[in-house]
Design a protein around this nucleic acid. Structure first.
Length: 455
RNA sequence: CUCCCGUUCGUCUAGCCAGGCCUAGGACACUGGGUUUUCAUCCCAGCGACAGGGGUUCGAAUCCCCUACGGGAGGCCA
């Protein structure tokens, strides 16, 4: 156990943003890498939007990604409470220290932090007004990701609002001091705030934590960082779309960090082992769902069949494809056939639909392809004749019969495959054809072949 | 407007700190082949980038400066 203490300090907003999730992930990884402590602290100083539901979404998202916390809500810890709304007494104590040392003062009913330095007034083109500024010494931030960063804070800032509530900068620093946070890992959008925070740490005479500002996640298309309204911005979305959490987590690791050895699909243990600040990039990373999907497919394919079935069953039930009390053996057989071919759990229902019902989508492209062969009707009749004769109706016997018939007709047996597949599934792709036919059964196969012949 | 950060294939990135090993490597996507009786995997190949300009140097993707572009911050939001 090292003395590293990191924290993820989200404000419950009702959704779990992918950028927040990645910040949580990096903190968690660093804690696990160093054998330190990962703390979850809820920054609920804000108004009405902090509801129980908002907290639930957050905690569920954390659990879904497998980010367990060592101190925080539900698990407690020595530095509690872990909700800022319950820490008022601590903030009052710290405020008193600043008041006593003359580093805080009241103005307009709010309490301000006083910077040290020579005061003057200047016109602020952003605020479009005259403001008091301070000729202050620059704050030096030794950032673990970006190196030395200098920034000068030049205006006093509010630390307690008129309504008596402390503001983010104040509570954030106080809690980090109180909780013994050693490393502050957060998004680059906080880099500019860091000078305020350093001023506060110093005013309290507290040692500075190591700061590590990680790059932001940019939206997939268009300018700017990912915002909650963008597609793919919320962790809940991936859960609902049945992405595998290991895949999402793996992808998130790669957004702004890499192990520098060309590895991409990695176990979480190997990521924990190699995760460190030098591997974190400085430039922002653009989100790319295609890459996430390819990772997701890779994870899906290597799931044990048992796990695959366990995940697939409720999805198919919910989609109305498979009844709750359906034939277990048949379902197992279908899923075993489909796992190596399916791209995602999200699309699994449509992928397997034709196994469970005679009404299923017909792929227009596949149909066009079939019709392109002028003799397709004739071929279909030949296939029907073959299928009629197959007994027993097993993958091996069907294959052998087709091969024999094809040889007699002087063609390659696989020339019929796309036609057969389309006739029984309406698709151009899918599981291995022979086992597929065996699984559907003779009656169903013949009926569908005849069905297509009538068209 | 001010301040801070960044900039290698379409995207994620390796290389940059310790300049020559870079005709810039990998992955996703895309295209074309091959394996597979179909489908999918898999394999091979192709496509494709050092933002621009100056400097330092025998030599720069790598060091320095400028410009451009991108991102962030500048709330009694977090």
């Amino acid at each position: 156990m090292s003395n590293v203490r990191v924290r993820f300090a989200p404000s419950p907003t009702g959704f779990f943003h992918i950028g927040s999730a990645r910040t949580a992930l990096f903190n968690w990884l660093y804690a696990r890498h160093t054998g330190g402590t990962f703390i979850l602290r809820i920054e609920d100083t804000d108004r009405q939007r902090n509801t129980d539901e908002a907290l639930r979404v957050l905690l569920e998202g954390m659990r879904w990604l497998g980010l367990n916390w060592d101190e925080g809500p539900e698990v407690g810890g020595v530095c509690g409470p872990y909700f800022q709304s319950e820490r008022s007494a601590i903030y009052q104590r710290y405020l008193q220290r600043l008041l006593d040392s003359g580093r805080a003062y009241e103005k307009d009913g709010a309490i301000w932090f006083r910077l040290e330095g020579e005061r003057y007034t200047a016109y602020d083109d952003f605020k479009k007004q005259e403001v008091e500024k301070v000729r202050n010494r620059p704050v030096v931030i030794e950032d673990a990701v970006r190196g030395r960063v200098e920034r000068t804070e030049e205006q006093d800032f509010v630390i307690f609002r008129q309504n008596g509530e402390p503001v983010f900068h104040f509570v954030n620093v106080v809690d980090d001091i109180e909780m013994g946070i050693t490393h502050v890992i957060r998004g680059e959008d906080h880099l500019s705030n860091t000078s305020k925070h350093v001023e506060l740490f110093e005013a309290f005479g507290a040692p500075l934590p190591v700061f590590a500002h990680i790059p932001l996640i940019l939206k997939e298309s268009g300018p700017g960082k990912m915002s909650k309204r963008d597609k793919g911005a919320l962790i809940e979305e991936y859960e609902q779309r049945h992405f595998l959490p290991e895949a999402v987590r793996n992808y998130l690791c790669l957004l702004g960090w890499n192990p520098k050895d060309d590895q991409e699909k990695m176990t979480i243990d190997s990521i924990i082992e190699s995760f460190d600040f030098p591997g974190i990039n400085k430039g922002n990373a653009r989100f790319d769902e295609r890459k996430l999907s390819s990772l997701n497919t890779a994870y899906l394919r290597e799931l044990p069949l048992e796990s695959f079935c366990w995940l697939a069953r409720p999805i198919l039930n919910q989609a109305g494809i498979v009844a709750e009390d359906s034939n277990e053996d048949y379902l197992q057989k279908v899923l075993a056939l489909c796992q190596p071919k399916a791209r995602s759990l999200e699309t699994l229902a449509e992928f397997v639909a034709y196994f469970f019902s005679d009404t299923y989508e017909v792929d227009a492209k596949a149909e066009k392809k079939i019709h392109r062969d002028a003799n397709w009707q004739e071929s279909l009749q030949q296939v029907i004749a073959v299928m009629h004769a197959v007994e027993p109706f097993s993958a091996e016997t069907i294959g052998a019969s087709l091969e024999k018939a094809a040889a007699e007709a002087g063609i390659q047996p696989f020339a019929w495959f796309p036609l057969i597949r389309f006739a029984v599934s309406g698709q151009s792709g899918g599981p291995d054809l022979m086992p597929l036919l065996e699984t559907l059964g003779k009656e169903c196969v013949l009926s569908r072949l005849h069905g297509l012949a009538k068209c």
